[in-house]
Design a protein around this nucleic acid. Structure first.
Lengths: 205, 205
DNA sequence: GCATGTGAACGGATTCACAGCG
DNA sequence: CGCTGTGAATCCGTTCACATGC
């Protein structure tokens, strides 16, 4: 029996639950409720219970959820119990900042390869990780079996690089380039464009 | 007659339309259709027509949309015809990277003030912009009439800083801190947490 | 003829409200 | 008694399909 496919919108909230629960754990808390978690996140308690119930019964009636247990379950569901090695393509200002970001490792991701086309950068290092030439990217990624990549190249180069990432076997792309890219249906893309978010808010001002 | 309130989810797509249309314009294109735009973005043509129709009739039947005209209309709707001055709080690795990002200005935003608590940073400059002490943030923001802020402080400080931003009159916050913050209903918040996006994708791998 | 703009139909997501169980 | 898990009801967003007008 194949697991029922879970809507993207539900899966998109699980990392928020995980993040908040880890935070609660650090505060020394042992147990929480859907209501308390919802208040932290601005999400209704019914929503949280419904979301979690898609994957199992993790709570105790009358008591709530054991935080450590739920954290483990969410990590398993999101497949971040182990660390994913990630490729980062593009080491300009933006890519360099991403490479220096310290918050990936303890949440399931490690930048394991850097690529750039600039000959002045190739061969230098960031955090003891060498910058490789994008020309050799496809075999390099394939050989290391990387499945996740972050894209921090200029918008005009994003589609071309994305095509090569797919060719290399990448199945998930986090795109920092301010443009849309098209990939096969079996590859997932998420976008980070701060200006899009800002423009969304200014409409209401 | 007050304009009908437009759903957040619709407004959230307008910046994508704008971004793609500007791109088309740079490619020398004059006219496009909802179908072509949709193909670029992976959105149905009906969706695009419906979204745009919430704000007016911008197309010509049998012809499509004039790109330059629609760009102007979207800028007006999103209120990015003029440049918004933005405060950036937190100039660590992440905030420094945001401050150096060159992509804000031509899309409606200019970083106009920097704040940090680190005495070693206060008084120094980034891009000729001085870093001010967060202690004086509230009057500084209020005096300059800033309405938009970006938050790039550690997660544990985010709520406290957000409270002060609200106090200072900020109405839109782009939060880079990996945590949820709570603000009054009249203030908008958007989040950027790359790990959340990555975790969302790894579930499906 | 062709692409927009839009009511109607559809489907999916959220909320409601309560049975069930600790 | 309190809080979860969940069918039922509701709400909302997307797609359909076509009348409209260039």
């Amino acid at each position: 029996m194949p697991e029922a496919p879970v809507p993207e919108i539900v899966v998109g909230r699980l990392p928020l639950y995980l993040r908040a629960l880890v935070q609660m754990g650090l505060e020394g808390r042992q147990v929480t409720s859907s209501q308390e978690l919802g208040e932290r996140l601005g999400i209704s308690s019914a929503q949280i219970r419904k979301d979690l119930s898609q994957f199992g019964e993790f709570g105790k009636q009358g008591t709530g959820y054991n935080i450590a247990f739920l954290v483990e379950q969410l990590k398993r569901i999101l497949k971040v119990e182990t660390i994913w090695d990630v490729a980062l393509v593009g080491v300009g200002d933006l890519g360099r900042a991403v490479a220096h970001y310290a918050g990936f490792l303890d949440r399931g991701f490690r930048i394991a390869a850097l690529f750039d086309t600039d000959p002045a950068k190739v061969g230098t290092q960031i955090n003891n990780l060498p910058i490789e030439d994008t020309a050799g990217m496809v075999p390099a990624i394939r050989q290391r079996g990387l499945k996740v990549a972050m894209l921090a190249v200029p918008a005009r180069d994003a589609q071309g690089v994305a095509d090569r990432l797919v060719e290399a076997g990448i199945q998930a792309i986090l795109c920092y380039a301010p443009t849309s890219i098209s990939v096969p249906a079996n590859v997932r893309v998420q976008y980070i464009d701060p200006v899009v978010r800002l423009q969304q808010m200014t409409h209401y001002l």
